[in-house]
Design a protein around this nucleic acid. Structure first.
Lengths: 332, 332
DNA sequence: TTGAAAGCGCTAACAA
DNA sequence: TTGTTAGCGCTTTCAA
């Protein structure tokens, strides 16, 4: 290739990497490259530079629209800077995840973005040279850059909106006790409801009766909702902390003939689910696409060698009001 | 590393690649490697061998459980031979797909497995050196190995089963006219029904009244089913050629209060969908996992340099009988 | 601004 | 069986 253009290999390299080359020679190189369909060999480049232009993205569940959208965001951002993303599905399995991490090291990838399979068992200690960015969940005891979702804020948004819509007795169906995501969203609910009750001079203890822990699955949501409906004083709205449980909740409400918005329903979601039948569901949307985009941005800064303290970027959720939470009297 | 073990680099290489080395020296190498946490540099290896141990897997929709399962099959098979898979989501977009194909070339991947975004516009002409295996759909005018699904056989299985269950007036809701997958499944239906009618000495023309083309989406399935139910002589069973449309069909039947198995329903599917409510759906299952596994097998044979004519492997579907097709009288 | 030369870590051919 | 050597295609000094 260098010979074809009548220049040295060094000059060709400079043309493709933005070095200083006279316009005339640069053009000659480009023309020859086009003719010969030459494209720089990325493997040789990676060997020489001790770093490839591939970013590993390890996520726990590739079928989950949330992570899928995250991957899209990462991909778009990477492509713009001429990096490529290799997608790895850890399946929430720490062993499988470790194998992917090994590969990232062996392939001398430029960096890794990881939504860890386990907060405590995912081991990032070997990543001293290669930059890592955690997304969605931060592995314990690893100092890395991270991009997180402000789950508590989302819970606050959700609850405040239900109150504004005129609901008064609001319940919360959340995920497993002790799971970061569900606890944080629940905290948002508690904080806003607590303040509301305090203003009214009401007893904070009633709050506890309206909280149910479930399992993030449709069945768990249905059971919890049935349980709430059986209360002496059932709630007039419910904040469900993920959309899978919301499916079960809606089913329970349909069976009980108390469909939203008579009972308000608001869930955490954010990625378009194909046609949940019935009234359209209000949600607090997760910034999944931006999570991926931001993670790549952070990673590329590290890759380019910027020395700076590790940082955590927290992205906000956004409230999407649809018909399931318009108010208890809107549809008499 | 070679120095640490007191041997030459060549010996280290042989230890890691199954060359002939005396047990004593091999052990010494392995021990040093463990101590130093040494792992061979795959980039250098790829440069030297002019071929990496990465296989590109390009699929049109990562969220689709079918392709997801295919990816798992490919991954498991590759892992067993020390290859890794990089997953690329083309999003049914030919441009995006072409960028991935460029990357595969530039990264000197070992090979590519592709479920093409377009049968006519996906251009594989540049892949003269690098082996390619087509899965699920074969790009037009490319001579490559391929792994396909026997859709027609699936349609035949489905229809024959409905007949065996005692249904007599069987309809078919299929995908868009001209789409390979839906046409092939429909052919299976036509062939079996045609033979059945001929045996009975009945008019073949009535077949056409019972066929509806839809769009592979739930809404299309619902509309088509409503249309069929409005016939003077409505069908007593329906073969739906994908599971998305089956969702709409079941909804239409519920609304009409003619739930299966009173009207038999059998759809194409094969990857566990999360809890379709109602009676469990009989399906013709696609061999998605094996599709991925087989494609990797074929690719690795090519990679290892076997010269042989290009071949197409066709995998069979499998009938899963559940309650939606047990027969018109089973639940009087 | 340009080219010559060295070297990234590995494997394959060859010689011992 | 083992070591020596060359070279994969690139980027990066360094000198011109």
């Amino acid at each position: 290739m260098a010979r074809a253009a009548g220049v040295s290999a060094a000059t060709v390299s400079r043309v493709f990497n933005g070095g200083r080359v006279t316009a005339e020679r640069a053009e000659r190189v480009l023309r020859s490259a086009a003719e010969l369909r030459f494209a720089p060999n990325r493997v040789a480049r990676a060997l020489r530079m001790q770093r490839s232009s591939v970013i590993g993205l390890i996520i726990p569940d590739i079928e989950n629209p949330y992570f899928n959208s995250l991957a899209r965001g990462a991909e778009d951002a990477a492509q713009r800077k001429n990096f490529s993303i290799v997608l790895c599905n850890s399946d929430l399995n720490v062993d499988k995840e470790r194998r992917y991490l090994d590969t990232a090291l062996a392939e001398q990838m430029a960096g890794v973005i990881i939504a860890a399979a386990s907060r405590s068992h995912t081991d990032l200690s070997r990543f001293t040279e290669m930059p890592v960015v955690a997304v969605d969940r931060r592995p314990l005891g690893a100092t890395v850059d991270a991009v997180m979702v402000d789950n508590q804020h989302g819970g606050e948004q959700a609850t405040a909106h239900l109150l504004r819509s005129g609901y008064r007795r609001i319940a919360c169906i959340t995920g497993p006790e002790g799971a970061a995501v569900s606890e944080e969203r629940l905290t948002g609910f508690r904080v806003v409801m607590g303040e509301h009750l305090r203003e009214l001079g009401q007893d904070q203890a009633q709050l506890r009766d309206l909280i149910r822990y479930a399992d993030f699955q449709p069945d768990g949501g249905r059971t919890a909702m049935c349980d709430l409906l059986a209360l002496e004083e059932p709630p007039d709205a419910v904040f469900v902390t993920n959309d899978l449980m919301a499916v079960g909740v809606l089913e329970a409400l349909r069976v009980a003939d108390r469909e939203p918005p008579r009972i308000g329903v608001l869930s955490f979601g954010g990625v378009p689910r194909t046609s949940l039948v019935g009234p359209s569901l209000s949600t607090v949307d997760l910034p999944s696409y931006d999570l991926g985009r931001t993670a790549v941005g952070l990673l590329l800064e590290r890759i380019s060698g910027k020395e700076k303290p590790h940082q955590t970027v927290v992205l906000q959720t956004s409230l999407q009001v649809r018909s399931s939470s318009v108010g208890p009297t809107a549809c008499p």
